[in-house]
Design a protein around this nucleic acid. Structure first.
Length: 459
RNA sequence: GCCGGUUUAGCUCAGCAGGUAGAGCAAGCGGCUGUUAACCGCUAGGCCGUAGGUUCAAGUCCUACAACCGGCGCCA
C-alpha cells in the first residue's frame, strides 16, 4: 500500500497514515529533527520526511543520499515554507544502503559526468524530468495519430533494401569475422549469410510505410532508426527514434499541414502535462522556454520556398562563410539565419532543387525542383524532412535511372506505382530533436536514455 | 572526418615566468539550528588523460595518441 509520491503531494489528506518508498535525495539534521528529501521518480518534487532524532538515533547515520527506504507515518501540514505537506515518519525501513562512494551527490553535476553513469543519471533531477517529458511526448505522438485514424505500423528494423541512401548503414551479419566467405571474384559472398543477402539496420521506415499508405491508408511508424555516420555533434545519434507518417491521397501542402498540427500538438502536450518538470526546464535549463512554446503552439509556422529563401540569404551574403547560391544545399549557418534571424520560429522550406534531394521526391512542374519540405527550428536545426512522393511510374523510372541507381532493386517500390498508384506524402520527425527543443537540453545525448554515437555504446 | 578548446582529489575547478600540488562541494568526525543547494570547525583524500621527448628540474615546454566539449560536414 505504498503510494507514489506524486499522488501523495497532489491528493494526500492531512492526518492520513501513509507509506512512501523511494530514494533519499538529501538529508539535513537539526537538533531534534532529521529531514529527508524522498524521491521515487513519479514527479519532480520530493516528499519531505521528518524523523524525530531521538527515536531513530541508531539508523540516522545510515540515511545518506541514494539510500532506498520505506517510511510510514502520518501526512501532516508543514509548519515551514517550501512544501504544503510532509510525512512525519514513525518507522523507517532501509531497503538498500549506500556506500560512501555513491557517485551522485547533493550538488550539481555536469551532464558530461552524468553521461558516464547513465545507469544512475535518471535519479538526478534533470534526467528524471527529461525522461518523464520524453514519456509524455511519446504518448502524445500516438494520441495525435490514433485520434486521426492513422494506423501504427511496425516497420522492420532489419532490412535488405539498400534503397534510400539516407546514410551509412550498420551491417547485420552472422558471419564469423575471422572467416568471411568469398566467391570466385573474391567478393564477399552474402548469399551464404543468415538472410541470404546483405542486410542492414534500417535508416528509415518510409518505403515500408508507403506500402501501407497505399493499402490501409494513413499510417505512421515510430521506432528506432540507425545511421552509421561518423557524426560528432550535439544533434546526431547513431541510434535514434523517428516518427514517419505517410499520408494517402495527399500533396505537399497537406503534408505540411499535418506536420504543423503534429508539432504544435506536441508543444501543447508538453505545456499542459509538463507540470513541475517543464517549470524546471524553464527555470534552470533555458530561460523563456515556456513562453516560447506557448507562442509557437498558437502561431502558424512560416513557409518559404527554397528559391525565395536563397534570394533572402543572398541579400546577406557577406555574413556567411559559405556564399548562398541557387543549387547548393542549405548550410547550417543558412538554416540558422532563416529560422533564428528572419523568422524567429519554425519555418518550412519547400521545393528544393531536384539534384540535392532523394530520388523518390515528386518532380515539380518546373522540372527543376521537387516537392520537398524541411521544417527548421531554432537551435536544433532540421527537425523534419518530408516530401510528396513521386507517384508517376515513368517519371520515377527515369529518376532512378538518371541517378544511377539499380532499377531492379526497386521492383516492389515501382509496383506501388504500377498498380493503382495514388498521390501520397509523408515526413520523418527526429524524436530526440523534438525532446531537445521542448526541454531546452542542448546535447541530444542527454535526451535519450542510453545514447549510441561514435565510440559510445555503454550500458 | 575537419577546425578549435579541454583533460589536476569522488565532483567542479585554480595552479602566475618550468623548482616535486591548492580551493569549494562531496565523504568521515564534532558543533549549531524546523531544515530545505542549510551553516561553522576539524580530518582524510592526488603516479596532475596515456606514451615518448627537451631540461639539473615538467602539472607547467614539445610530439604522438585517446577521450570529452564547442563549431563544421553528413542528416532526423
Amino acid at each position: 500500500m505504498t503510494i507514489r509520491i506524486k499522488e501523495i503531494l497532489e491528493n494526500g489528506k492531512v492526518g492520513e497514515l501513509i507509506s512512501a518508498s523511494g530514494w533519499i535525495r538529501t538529508r539535513r539534521d537539526s537538533k531534534t529533527v532529521t529531514f529527508i528529501e524522498l524521491n521515487d521518480g513519479s514527479c519532480f518534487k520530493n516528499l519531505q520526511v521528518t524523523l524525530d532524532a531521538s527515536n531513530h538515533s541508531e539508523i540516522l547515520s545510515a540515511l545518506g543520499t541514494g539510500t532506498s527506504v520505506t517510511v510510514m507515518g502520518n501526512l501532516v501540514q508543514s509548519p515551514a515554507a517550501g512544501q504544503a505537506v510532509e510525512l512525519a515518519g514513525d518507522t523507517v525501513k532501509i531497503i538498500g544502503s549506500v556506500e560512501s562512494d555513491y557517485p551522485l551527490q547533493k550538488k550539481r553535476h555536469s551532464f558530461e559526468f552524468l553521461r558516464e553513469i547513465a545507469h544512475l543519471r535518471p535519479r538526478a533531477n534533470t534526467f528524471g524530468a527529461v525522461f518523464r517529458m520524453r514519456n509524455i511526448l511519446s504518448f502524445a505522438v500516438h494520441e495525435f495519430f490514433q485520434s486521426r485514424g492513422y494506423v501504427y505500423l511496425n516497420s522492420p528494423i532489419i532490412t535488405t533494401s539498400d534503397c534510400e541512401g539516407a546514410g551509412e548503414m550498420f551491417r547485420v551479419s552472422c558471419f564469423d569475422p575471422e572467416k568471411i566467405p568469398r566467391n570466385d571474384k573474391n567478393e564477399i559472398d552474402w548469399s551464404r549469410d543468415f538472410f541470404g543477402k546483405a542486410a542492414s539496420l534500417t535508416v528509415s521506415g518510409q518505403l515500408e510505410a508507403e506500402i501501407f499508405a497505399t493499402s490501409l491508408g494513413n499510417c505512421y511508424t515510430f521506432g528506432p532508426t540507425f545511421r552509421a555516420e561518423n557524426s560528432n555533434t550535439s544533434r546526431h545519434l547513431a541510434e535514434f527514434w523517428m516518427i514517419e507518417p505517410e499520408i494517402a491521397f495527399a500533396d505537399l501542402k497537406e503534408d505540411m499541414n499535418v506536420a504543423e498540427d503534429f508539432v504544435r500538438y506536441l508543444f501543447k502536450a508538453a505545456l499542459s502535462r509538463g507540470g513541475d518538470d517543464l517549470d524546471f526546464f524553464d527555470d534552470r535549463i533555458e530561460k523563456g522556454l515556456k513562453a516560447n512554446l506557448e507562442r509557437l503552439a498558437d502561431a502558424p509556422f512560416e513557409r518559404i520556398t527554397y528559391t525565395d529563401a536563397m534570394t533572402e540569404l543572398e541579400k546577406h551574403a557577406d555574413s556567411f562563410e559559405f556564399k548562398p547560391s541557387w543549387g547548393i544545399d542549405l548550410q547550417s549557418e543558412h538554416e540558422r539565419f532563416i529560422t533564428e534571424k528572419i523568422f524567429n520560429g519554425p519555418v518550412f522550406v519547400t521545393d528544393y532543387p531536384k539534384d540535392i534531394k532523394a530520388f523518390y521526391m515528386r518532380l515539380n512542374e518546373d522540372e527543376k525542383t521537387v516537392a520537398a519540405m524541411d521544417l527548421l527550428m531554432p537551435r536544433v536545426g532540421e527537425i523534419i524532412g518530408g516530401s510528396q512522393r513521386e507517384e508517376r511510374y515513368n517519371v520515377l523510372v527515369d529518376k532512378i535511372k538518371t541517378m544511377g541507381l539499380n532499377i531492379e532493386d526497386y521492383w516492389w517500390y515501382l509496383d506501388l506505382r504500377k498498380y493503382g498508384t495514388i498521390p501520397h506524402a509523408g515526413f520523418g520527425l527526429g524524436f530526440e530533436r523534438m525532446v531537445q527543443f521542448v526541454t531546452g537540453m542542448s546535447n541530444i545525448r542527454d535526451v535519450i536514455p542510453f545514447p549510441r554515437a561514435p565510440k559510445l555504446a555503454d550500458f
